[in-house]
Design a protein around this nucleic acid. Structure first.
Lengths: 165, 165
DNA sequence: ACCAATAATGGGTGCCAACCTACAATAGTG
DNA sequence: CACTATTGTAGGTTGGCACCCATTATTGGT
């Protein structure tokens, strides 16, 4: 209690500073800490790659959602991805400008747009997922195939519990 | 290729909108996607709790580092945690104001501060880790003890590969 | 005694994600 | 038709995080 581990870091007795370099064990002991560090790293790396193609995460998410589930009313797309409708507008503006999604008025309700991914959008999505997988290989480098499966399964379980239906 | 899964979401034929609600499979298939989503969630929740105590992540990291490794020269502390020295100054200002860390001039090099955690700081850290563990229980709820160990071990391996030593 | 390097600080910048509000067009409802 | 709700849009705010630079005090070297 009085005595912490007390390495008495670098108190420079004789002038030489020996700084430890690792992360605090009381943090790395937390699974959530590792989770957020590694997750942030992964996110950062993929974001960097997407930026190389002038895109951000939401663009990819939108393309993926449309490719996976088919056309959506714009609003429902926002709901599905839990993004603010006004932000969705901006993301779609950009994707439309690139010709990667198409906004068409729903004739039965002219307030609504039906949003669909174009052929070019699908191609883009394929490129993006390729990049993402490359990042994945970087990040999961120290794990062998079986370990990767395990990790994926565990995360999927956690993910499904809160976000999956 | 021509035919996506095409659920033709909510095209409102008769007025009823049936919006799917899950995340796109082509994303959830990526381990890095799960990693960043779950990680972000974990980070967000803990951040929220810390905010309840008027603190942010860096404050906790600093307290943890000092508790784990003993007093640091301020600059080395910044290096260890990979934070900009000027930002470290600000974080420490706040912790000092709360009486949770102590800045004392190193008598052998009066440019330097030696930073140490106070008793009150250690108490705070204990509260914070308690909060963090609570969050962890929320997030990892669907996993049993063995699965949690597995997950932790896998993440630790990944983490160590880039950040450790 | 002088000079170059270093520690800490103060005061910025830019970026991004999340959120919020007001508004115009359109729809359904009594 | 009058009224209310909904859709998409425009615009702006906020908070965090990561940087970066100029300045000041102090050191160590020569």
């Amino acid at each position: 209690m009085t005595d912490s581990s007390a390495t008495d870091n670098g108190v420079t007795k004789s002038g030489v500073t020996e700084t430890g370099t690792g992360a605090p064990p009381s943090l790395t002991a937390l699974t959530t800490y590792l989770l957020s560090r590694v997750g942030k790293d992964a996110r950062g790396r993929t974001a960097a790659r997407l930026a190389g193609r002038e895109l951000r995460m939401w663009h990819m998410a939108v393309l993926a959602a449309l490719a996976d589930f088919g056309p959506h009313p714009q609003r429902d797309l926002a709901v599905r991805l839990s993004i603010d409708p006004s932000d969705m507008t901006k993301v779609l503006d950009e994707l439309v400008a690139r010709g990667q999604v198409e906004r068409t008025r729903d004739p039965h309700d002219r307030r609504r747009f039906s949003v669909a991914v174009s052929a070019s959008g699908k191609r883009e999505l394929r490129r993006l997922t390729a990049e993402a997988r490359a990042v994945q290989d970087e990040v999961l480098a120290p794990l062998d195939a079986r370990e990767r499966e395990q990790l994926h399964a565990l995360l999927a379980k956690v993910f499904a519990h809160r976000y999956g239906r």
